[in-house]
Amino acid sequence: MKRYAMVIDLRRCVGCQTCTAACKSANATPTGVQWRRVLDLESGEFPDVRRSFVPVACMHCANPPCEEVCPTTATKKRADGLVTIDYDICIGCANCIMACPYDARSIIHQPQYAYGDQPIASEAARMDSQHIGVATKCTFCKDRIDLAERTGQIPGRDPEVTPACVNSCISGAMHFGDILDSDSNVSRLLAENESFRMHEELGTAPAVHYILDRR
């Protein structure tokens, strides 16, 4: 039994957007669609000002409201905690987008390209028509997690089976692993630090934890 989770150390994130770029590269999301983003938050009044960077994407909730409202059963929660979308079933009604409090899902109804109406070579090579007219979102790099099941590698430790955003993080802010394993990196980080989950009051039980400070 596994339950995959992500731990993001907000003390370390420098807002470089490398995870955003890595996600885009790994998943070939179309122009205008970013499954992972880094929020840039400035607050306070001079001289007491602060700036925080908050990487966000699908939170792979334990109680996903997107799954509850989906009329087609395209959205499902797996036993290991990943929330998935079956693109062959989804009708693109956008109800899941309304249900998600994390602004994590997107639909595009027409192919979109970076430069004009025609795709550049890399877009033409990697465009997936399955993604048009249906809801899409971060998968926690599901194919890599599935590969780990076959190879026995450990997500979060072995790069081949770790989400692209976590691999790419230059400051070591992002961590991935099995939260039910008390020896995993994510379990240890959560035990040692003060953390929170986004909009926890809504009862979604997200699988992404943010570290604020030491305990």
């Binding site: 799954e67 509850e68 409202v69 989906c70 009329p71 087609t72 059963t73 395209a74 079933i89 989804c90 009708i91 693109g92 009604c93 956008a94 109800n95 639909i107 109804h109 048009i132 007219g133 249906v134």
Partner: peptide, 28 residues
């Protein structure tokens, strides 16, 4: 009107698949 809104209108019958928890299915 809704049929004209959805991204994959020719799959619209899939809306009947999740009566267990989806109010959109129940509405249909």
């Amino acid at each position: 009107c809704v049929w004209f809104e959805i991204g994959r209108p020719w799959r619209a019958m899939n809306v009947f698949r999740h009566v267990g928890s989806s109010w959109m299915t129940r509405e249909a």
